[in-house]
Nucleic acid binder design. Structure first.
Lengths: 145, 145
DNA sequence: CTTGACCTTCCACCATACTGGAAGGAGTAG
DNA sequence: CTACTCCTTCCAGTATGGTGGAAGGTCAAG
């Protein structure tokens, strides 16, 4: 069934992470305590490669290690984590939409700021009007508040 | 000319930041070393409020304290930082566009993942197909779940 | 037996942006 | 005088996701 066991560096190579990272994931509970061979070396089945891939995929999806840990813990508890992951991902989509809106607004603000600069290169501000003006769209207070 | 001098907590109140934060900004060079009154207390002119507002605005625009520090340093050097800030903001816009593209792709991937889940609630994956499938569009080997 | 690769643990550090708290000085009110 | 608030410095910790390195154990080759 299960083929050969991997030592930590071999696992790292296959999953594209450092041995440091593997031990770190283990330390924070993302990875379970692995089996040890007689000399104390960690030993992993090939499944561990998939779990590490999962971690990297999940990180790519914007999940934190804490969330990933939780998913894997549910999985290790025997329950399929999909229900949980579904909710988690739904929340992520909502959060992402919010973040997206903010970022687009920010980008537009910057773009407008740059356009304004091209129209009128000078300005008076405490430090720099590129930053001080766009965030106060209406007239900045004139010196006295 | 300049009105009254502020002590650190008064400055903090006006700018909406804690005294801790003000000292922190000073320590990392974002704020210049302030004047001191005879008893050693920091003393600030009202301009400091504007500088702190600038810092907060710039942070809101996605600049790091290191970048903000640089801008303020240029400004303190007598040169208007606008040229520099212009470049910085241009780079920010480009970086933001990139990030935006990635986030939109991520969001779509999540959304599609959730839609797929609704169509077919089960799946086989090392940990959870919601995460493993969308990033690997073709069928994964049936082993884990 | 020595060398070298690989493994172990543990402690410390990187960046980012702060926050908390201790220990002690300064200034004002009663 | 005490009490209280505000100020000072300095050290440490928060959260996130790791990385670096020391000191020492294990194992196979030469």
């Amino acid at each position: 069934m299960s083929g050969k066991q991997l030592r930590i560096s071999e696992l790292g190579k296959r999953a594209g992470v450092s041995t440091k990272t593997i031990r770190f994931y283990e330390a924070i509970g993302v990875l379970p305590l692995p089996a040890r061979v007689t000399n104390g070396y960690r030993t992993y089945s090939a499944d561990a490669v998939d779990v590490l891939h999962f971690v990297k995929q999940a990180q790519g999806l914007g999940l934190t290690l804490a969330e990933i840990k939780e998913i894997i813990a549910i999985r290790r508890g025997g329950r399929p984590p999909c229900q949980h992951v579904y909710k988690l991902l739904q929340e992520k989509v909502v959060a992402l939409d919010r973040k997206l809106r903010d970022l687009i607004a920010l980008r537009d603000r910057l773009q407008e700021s740059l356009a304004a600069w091209r129209r009128q290169p000078a300005g008076k501000a405490a430090v720099c009007h590129h930053i001080e003006s766009p965030a106060r769209p209406r007239q900045r207070r004139a010196q006295g508040d």
